[in-house]
Amino acid sequence: MTDSPGADPRHSEHDEGFAPQEQEQPGTTDETRPTPDHGEESYRGSDRLRGRRALITGGDSGIGRAVAIAFAREGADVAIAHMPEEQEDADETIGWIEKAGCRGRSLAGDIRDEEFATGIVDRTIAEFGGLDILVLNAAYQKDRESLDDLSTEEFDRVFRTNLYGLLWTARTAVPHLEPGSSIIVTSSIQAFNPSPNLIDYAMTKAAQVAFVKALAQQLGGKGIRVNAVAPGPIWTPLIPATGGDPEWIEQFGQDTPLGRAGQPAELAGAYVYLASDAATYVSGAVLPVTGGKGL
């Protein structure tokens, strides 16, 4: 009998380009072709987060949904924050959480609104009796042909979604976090290797890395860990909703060393690791999941 070395990472998920497609923001799963893999049929838990309580912003679809499913299958109760327009996706995610035998809570609103961004913490604690894991994942990006094409209104939307909302939610959550709690930010390869057509998005992702490294130093003495995951090209509804040249979609992820885009399910394990006791000595780190593209 010959031992298998494992799945070939070049072909273990969708390994071709994508048909041209476009969506309005914020993008939905049912309009994304092919449908992203969130680990619905593949992720197997092992009680690594049993009894913990998590809040995930942008948890309705894409990376957020994959993390929500994985956390629930590891035993955590999960609340997800999302835009009202994403309620259908959110309901499906909650269904997967509850199917895993855990409690799920859908929180609809706009993270750009300070009252909502802070209120989701209080609502999660009221529902679950506490908060142990905070995943700051909500994000907005849009293709920019040039700096001249970047309006102040759009610049403000990107920064309020990716930075202001993140700060408001984290600031509210920290006083409620006990030693052993974990904050995880979804940054991006764009923080280190920015694309010119995503200049404002890349700026916010670089700022998130600074936030993680600084906050990890602030909270280490309280026994709270702060880390980031830096995804590369991952197939989520955000991609066809980004706009730009249709060829960008067709070639999305093909320039990675593994030759393909990643799927949300392929990031879930990184978040589980950072949230779990396997990472008790990991803080201030940025974990790349990029298909081999360097940070």
Rank of each mutant, 00 (worst) to 15 (best):
A216W: 15
G101F: 01
E98S: 04
D156R: 14
L136Y: 12
R225E: 10
Y140H: 13
I120T: 00
D122V: 06
V226N: 05
Q218N: 15
W235P: 15
N193R: 13
Q190H: 10
Q141L: 13
P240F: 11
P231E: 14
S146G: 10
V158F: 06
D122T: 08
Q208C: 03
L198T: 04
P233E: 03
V212T: 04
I224L: 04
K213Y: 07
A126C: 13
I125G: 05
V212E: 04
P179S: 00
I111V: 05
V135G: 11
L147N: 07
G232W: 03
L136F: 06
I239F: 09
D143V: 14
N162K: 11
Q208W: 03
L134C: 05
S188L: 02
D113G: 06
E145H: 06
F116V: 10
F192Y: 14
P179T: 02
L215Y: 08
A138M: 01
I199H: 03
V135P: 08
Q218F: 13
L136K: 10
R160H: 14
I199C: 02
D148M: 13
A207W: 01
L198I: 02
F159M: 14
L219P: 06
G101K: 09
I111D: 02
P240V: 10
A170F: 00
A228V: 09
P240C: 12
I189L: 09
P179A: 01
T161V: 11
I111G: 00
L215A: 12
W235C: 15
C102W: 09
D113F: 09
L177R: 00
E114Y: 02
L163T: 09
A216T: 12
N227I: 04
R160I: 06
G221P: 11
N227S: 08
V121W: 04
V135E: 11
A117N: 11
A139S: 15
G119W: 07
K99Y: 06
A206S: 07
V209T: 02
L163D: 09
E178R: 10
S181D: 07
P175T: 01
D149F: 09
G104I: 09
D143L: 13
P237M: 14
V135I: 14
T152R: 05
L177H: 00
M203F: 02
R112F: 02
N162H: 06
T242K: 08
N137I: 08
R157E: 07
A138P: 04
T172P: 03
V158D: 08
G129D: 00
L167K: 08
G232Q: 03
F128P: 03
I183V: 10
Q217S: 09
I189A: 04
R225T: 11
S182C: 02
N137E: 11
E178P: 09
E178V: 06
K222L: 12
I189Y: 03
I183K: 01
L136M: 11
T242H: 08
S106Y: 06
P231L: 12
Y140R: 10
A100Q: 06
P233L: 01
Q217E: 13
I97Q: 01
L107F: 02
N137S: 13
Q208I: 06
G129L: 03
I234V: 13
D200P: 14
P231V: 14
G109K: 03
A117V: 07
